[in-house]
Computed example of a mutant assay.
Amino acid sequence: MSTQSVAVASHNELNRNSLFNMKGRVALDIEGEIIALTADVASKQSIAKLVREIESREKCLCILVNNAGITSESVTTETETASDMKRNLFDNDKATFDDWTDTYRTNVASIYFVTAAFLPLLQKSLELHPGWPGTVINISSVSGLVKSAQHHFAYNASKAAAVHLTRMLSAEIAESGHKIRVNSIAPGIFPSEMTAQESNEFQKSHIPRENYAKKVPAARPGRDVDMAQAVLMLAAKQ
C-alpha cells in the first residue's frame, strides 16, 4: 500500500495542536501521516504560503476539501407586524454589513481563492496518477438549499452562494480543458463547534439524538460515517 499524506490546515494553534492528538487514532493498517498546518483561508497571502508549504512536501494534490465555515448573527423573523420585522432585521445592532461580509469572506470567497491557488497542484494529480484527476469537495450546507432563513440570513445566503460557486468553478475549469472535478456536499445538522458550541480534545462535538428525533427525516444528527461516505463517493474514480 502506498503512503498517503493528509494535510489539515487550521486557522489557529489550538485546533492545530489538537490534530496531533488525532494521529494516534488513525487506523493502524493505513500507512501515511497527518500534517498539521496553520493557515487563514480568508487571506490571499496565507493561502499562497499554504500552497508553497504543500508544494515543498508533495508532487501533487489529489483531493482538496474546502471545509472552513463560520455562522452569522441570528435574528428573529417571527413577528406580528412589518414594523416589528424591520426592527429585528434592520434596526438591530447585530444586523451589520460587517456580519455579512465576514460570513461571505470565509464561507464563499475562501472557496474561490483556495481552489484557484491549488489548481496547478490539482492538475498534476492526473499527470502522476493516470485515471485519477484532482478533485475539489466543497462543504456547503442544506441551509443553502432551503427557503427558510433559519434565523440567520447571511449564513444561509452564503451557503447558497457556495453551492452556486461550486457549479461555476466546475463549469469554467471543464470549459478550459483542465481535468479537475469540483463538487459540493450540503450536510444537514452535524455535531460541530458551530452547532454544539464546544468540542473535546479530539475536536469532536456532541448533539443529543433526541434533539432532532422529530426535526429531520433521519431522526438524528449526522455522524462521522455519513460525511465520510459522501466524501469517499466524490473522491473516488469516476
Rank of each mutant, 00 (worst) to 15 (best):
109 A>F: 00
155 Y>G: 00
182 V>P: 02
183 N>F: 11
89 L>A: 04
62 C>A: 11
213 A>I: 12
111 I>W: 03
76 T>W: 00
236 A>E: 05
123 Q>C: 14
96 T>M: 11
178 H>T: 12
43 S>I: 09
102 D>R: 15
61 L>F: 05
64 L>N: 03
204 K>M: 13
133 P>R: 04
162 A>K: 05
73 E>R: 12
174 A>R: 08
64 L>S: 05
131 G>N: 02
52 R>S: 15
85 M>I: 06
67 N>Q: 04
160 A>V: 05
45 Q>A: 06
21 N>V: 07
178 H>E: 15
136 V>L: 08
58 E>T: 11
20 F>I: 07
157 A>C: 13
128 L>D: 07
213 A>H: 10
116 A>Y: 14
88 N>L: 06
36 A>M: 02
162 A>N: 06
216 V>Y: 05
1 M>Y: 07
156 N>D: 13
67 N>H: 03
55 E>G: 04
124 K>M: 09
33 E>C: 07
71 T>Q: 03
203 Q>D: 15
108 V>T: 13
124 K>S: 12
10 S>A: 03
26 V>W: 05
187 P>Y: 01
215 K>G: 00
207 I>N: 01
109 A>H: 02
63 I>E: 10
123 Q>K: 11
184 S>Q: 02
25 R>W: 07
135 T>H: 15
173 I>E: 08
233 M>E: 01
222 G>Y: 12
177 G>H: 01
107 N>P: 04
23 K>S: 08
54 I>F: 07
101 T>C: 11
201 E>R: 01
79 T>N: 01
167 R>H: 02
15 N>D: 11
126 L>S: 02
218 A>T: 08
83 S>C: 03
144 G>R: 07
123 Q>A: 13
182 V>R: 03
201 E>G: 00
91 D>Q: 04
83 S>V: 15
